[in-house]
Simulated scan of single mutants.
Amino acid sequence: MRKLGLLLAVGLLCLSLAACGQSGESSSGDTADQAEQSQLPEMNETEEVQDEAPDAAEPTEPEPDSQTPLYEDNFSVDTEAVTAFAQKIQSVTAEQDLEGLADLIAYPVYVGFPEGGESVTSKEEFVALGAERIFTQELLQEIQDADLESLSPSMAGFSLSASGKPNIVFGVAEGTLAVLGINY
């Protein structure tokens, strides 16, 4: 903590000196920048953190979940992960578990009802649509009969369906798999 305070004080002092050393005319902003850089000690960002133990009163950042891999895009997801996620969708759909399906969604999500599509921006909004509206007999049958071994990536994601429509589209959202759309 003392090093951080000292570093801040040195930085403020350098800025003050650089501002005082400038004349009223500014011929070039580069000379002020060069003066600041030459007066500041070079310090690696990790040096500051490594020398100090975290203070118990200060909150620490949560560590990323090492169990959940982060994916760059739909084409970087391995077959096992795609199949496992599709099985989760099949499970919550078969149980008509609206909350469970809502937990698998990346919001906002497009829900393409036959009477017109809707963009749903939150879990609460999705749950408010109601299980009877989401879990139609056609959707339940298509998801149940879907061949999990034939799922292939596209730019839009993976389409989980036996014949094409209705379907649930899932893919990579912020590095993890999530439901991206439901179409009827």
Rank of each mutant, 00 (worst) to 15 (best):
K3V: 08
G5W: 06
L13Y: 15
C14D: 07
L15Y: 08
L17K: 11
L17W: 15
A19G: 06
Q22P: 06
S23C: 14
G24P: 01
S26D: 14
G29I: 12
A32S: 10
A32N: 08
D33W: 14
E36I: 12
S38F: 12
T46A: 14
E47G: 12
E48G: 10
V49M: 13
Q50E: 12
D51A: 08
A53G: 14
A53E: 12
D55Y: 06
T60D: 07
E63V: 09
E63C: 10
P64S: 06
P64C: 05
Q67D: 08
Y71Q: 04
F75M: 06
S76Y: 00
V77P: 03
T79C: 10
T83S: 12
A84Y: 11
A86L: 03
K88F: 06
Q90F: 05
T93D: 04
E99L: 06
E99Q: 10
P108V: 06
V111S: 00
G112C: 03
P114N: 14
P114E: 06
S119K: 15
S122T: 12
K123Q: 11
V127A: 05
A131Y: 05
E132G: 09
E132H: 05
R133P: 03
T136R: 05
L140H: 03
E142L: 04
I143W: 01
A146V: 03
L148T: 13
L148A: 02
L151P: 02
P153E: 02
A156N: 09
S159I: 10
G164W: 15
K165T: 15
P166N: 05
I168Q: 00
V169R: 07
G171R: 00
G171K: 03
G171F: 02
E174M: 07
T176S: 14
A178M: 04
A178Q: 02
G181P: 00
I182N: 02
N183D: 14
